[in-house]
Design a protein around this nucleic acid. Structure first.
Lengths: 225, 225
DNA sequence: GGGTAAATGAGGTGGACACCTCATAGAGGG
DNA sequence: CCCTCTATGAGGTGTCCACCTCATTTACCC
């Protein structure tokens, strides 16, 4: 008899975490061992707790769910990630899967789908919500043998670090604040920033914000709070 | 004892509805009698079921939660409405209260607050989540006299010129470009800009962009590219 | 092992901007 | 008629940032 499978939940809204917890509770083989409100918190918690599965939102302050997933699967390839998001756009799904997520469920869907997804990734399978699966199929059909899709739309691909810093810039943090947050020199942040702008062909912060909103790096709905 | 109080839930995300239901289930005096995924559905359902309380999101397709509340309280003044939202902006809260909502809880908050809010409105009271209450207090403090503009730094009314310049700033134009466009001295634009920031209590361009998007000064859909 | 890319960091320069005071001129209200 | 609000403009100061070059370390790939 195998013991319970541990789950960590990441979402910036308390009510949503509550909902996920309650949904997962209906499967007695699952145990929620921790919760985090953003990607950075999540990473810290997960590397401490080493859960079997992580259920995470995409749009979160500090660090988004996709960047977190990317870090996570790099360091702990055994941990399965299920993305639970409001976004059904192809770019999100592609990014999430490339980052290493094995499950993708829309928040519109019933709780049962989340349970199925968690079960699937625990079995080593993948699970895509049906509207999501449709988009992915479209994508592969359209792709002949492309080398690099260069997701993010703009032109060049940003590195992990660059995306992370970009999202902090767009949140409104200054170079100095970002440097303190990430334990870097302000000069390093400046350099990353310059690289980002050169890659994206933008000349100011507003251009970066537009890029971030257009590509969904930040959520247009909750960003403007 | 009195019989159970009936509740209808409106939210466009299944998982969130699930969460709300589970939270409310911990109070045995409450019974969720129906769910809707948008305001129109909600209105139809509510006029059929006549629940004691409605718990609703703001952002929903077809009809948003505030418009729904307005219709609702006009037709059925006895039905209490609790808003459950991600938005902590004053404008949302004020609109919701003016529309007739008696409770306002942020999704960031713990589920317990929602239970308290539902209990409060059932008792005929009002309930405002603490960060929300803070904003409302700001609003009333600001009202009696505008003699102290610098102190609060809260939301004040912009003049036409200020709004015009703000929208150009948010579009990404520099002070110099705006000056040329409006046949002004760059210094004048700078002064307006300073006044705007002082009025809105923001310290950088990103703050201005957030304000403009949140208040609809620029169109979130077309702005991003 | 050499090439390439990413991440880190430093130096310097100029420009844009946030923040301050001050001044003037017109519109509107008591 | 004064008083306030708005719009216009100027002066100055300091900070942050965009843009440049250069250097080091790590890592991955052929």
């Amino acid at each position: 008899m195998s013991q319970k499978h541990s789950v960590v939940i990441c979402d910036d809204h308390g009510i949503v975490r509550e909902g996920i917890k309650q949904v997962l509770a209906s499967n007695p083989a699952l145990e929620v061992v921790g919760e985090a409100a953003n990607g950075l918190e999540g990473l810290a918690l997960i590397s401490k707790l080493r859960p079997d599965v992580v259920v995470t939102d995409i749009t979160m302050p500090e660090m988004n769910g996709i960047d977190m997933t990317r870090e996570l699967t790099k360091e702990f390839p055994d941990i399965r990630v299920v993305i639970l998001s409001v976004h059904s756009r192809k770019t999100f799904i592609m990014e999430a899967l490339k980052a290493g997520a094995r499950g993708y469920v829309l928040k519109d869907s019933a709780g049962e789908k989340l349970l199925d997804a968690v079960q699937a990734v625990l079995d080593g399978d993948s699970y895509l919500d049906s509207p999501v699966a449709g988009h992915i199929v479209d994508e592969f059909v359209k792709m002949p043998s492309a080398s690099e899709p260069a997701a993010g739309g703009g032109g060049e691909t940003l590195t992990d670090r660059e995306r992370q810093i970009l999202s902090l810039v767009v949140e409104g943090f200054s170079n100095k604040q970002i440097a303190e947050k990430l334990f870097l020199s302000p000069k390093t942040v400046d350099n990353h920033r310059a690289k980002i702008m050169s890659k994206l062909g933008r000349r100011d912060v507003i251009g970066l914000v537009k890029y971030a909103l257009a590509t969904g790096l930040v959520d247009p709905d909750t960003w403007g709070r």
